[in-house]
């Protein structure tokens, strides 16, 4: 692995919310992603985890230039994506693909699935013949575990798991180098989840593709990722290698998230689990001052309300944003 494929620098995403009043309308700004930086290497999977409103989906979309970043940079193989010309961006887009959570709503219901999968080729490789395109689609269907005669079917004829395979085929057909997977298995049944996880891992082994794997489920994320990034209310709480983060989380929020995972263990009682992390996630329209996690944090001090904690590099490729990470360690 050489230099990073993708570099994200202090990325911010703002959404403007207009509240129409009787006599005036005032705009409020919701900062969904707040100064996030990280790098992604070739063939690496970075897991992004966090609860509702933590900015994980906005971050993925901003990297793919599907929403506009209000500050910061996304650098893909040396090119600043927000500042490059339209032609280059279109060309680079074939290298950047996305798979969504709800496979059925991500597929055009009026198009045979074979055409859905071949469509990106029409855009990104207009020169190849219809025959070549067909062959590529057939080969892709087999690679994702679908039969080639299924290309004539429509999305509603397929199960959720099969639709997700079709979405993955569509994303992979342009031979991308980065796949953003936004909760790709959350809408699937347990027995199908494992199939799709295995498929993504196999495709990565075969093609060396990099993956940003967005999920709220830490057990799935641990299984899929080389490194893990924990977000809360748009900010980075902690990022580090998988084993380091799971075995030795330094941020109190990472610790709480790991503790809250129910395990398939009959000896684990939910009594007392309620105290693991009390309180509610604050509104992103009105985030707490200083550290955004302080209102639920078990070790918060007055300092946390005054000052936003810096991203502190505490080991090679392990960063934490907490004033008291040294204390959190001993808990």
């Amino acid at each position: 692995m050489t230099g990073p494929l993708l570099t994200v620098e202090s990325l911010c995403v703002d959404y403007e919310q207009r509240r129409a009043g009787l006599f005036s309308s005032r705009a409020r700004t919701l900062r969904a992603v707040d100064g996030i930086s990280f790098e992604l290497a070739e063939g690496e999977t970075l897991g992004i985890v966090g609860e509702t409103g933590c900015g994980k989906t906005s971050l993925g979309k901003a990297i793919l230039q599907l929403v506009k970043a209000s500050a910061g940079r996304v650098i893909w193989r040396g090119v600043d994506l927000a500042r490059t010309d339209a032609e280059t961006l279109t060309r680079l887009r074939s290298e950047l693909q996305i798979v969504f959570q709800d496979p059925l709503s991500a597929l055009n219901p009026r198009m045979p699935v074979g055409e859905i999968v071949s469509e990106p080729l029409r855009v990104h490789a207009p020169d190849i013949s219809a025959k070549e395109r067909q062959a590529a689609v057939a080969a892709m269907f087999e690679r994702v575990g679908l039969r080639t005669e299924m290309t004539r079917g429509y999305p509603n004829e397929f199960s959720a798991g099969q639709c997700q395979r079709i979405s993955i085929a569509r994303a992979m057909i342009t031979q991308p180098r980065l796949l953003v997977c936004d909760e790709p298995v959350s809408a699937l049944d347990v027995s199908i989840q494992a199939q799709i996880c295995n498929l993504l891992r196999r495709l990565q082994r075969e093609t060396g593709i990099s993956i940003l794997f967005i999920s709220h489920d830490l057990s799935v994320l641990r299984y899929m990722s080389h490194r893990v990034m924990v977000l809360y209310l748009g900010r980075l709480m902690e990022i580090g290698r998988r084993d380091e983060l799971f075995d030795n989380p330094r941020h109190p929020y990472s610790r709480a998230l790991i503790d809250a995972i129910p395990e398939a263990d009959p000896n684990q009682s939910p009594l007392g689990m309620a105290d693991a992390l009390p309180g509610e996630i604050p509104s992103a329209l009105d985030p707490p001052s200083g550290c955004v996690f302080r209102t639920r944090c078990p070790i918060a001090t007055p300092e946390c309300a005054r000052e936003r904690p810096p991203d502190e590099c505490i080991a090679e490729s392990h960063r934490v944003s907490c004033h008291h990470w040294r204390q959190a360690r001993s808990q």
Binding site: D217, A274, D275, A276, L277
Partner: peptide, 10 residues
């Protein structure tokens, strides 16, 4: 969310 799930199960 997971942390809220833990609260409700508790």
């Amino acid at each position: 969310d997971v942390t809220i799930q833990a609260q409700i199960l508790g």
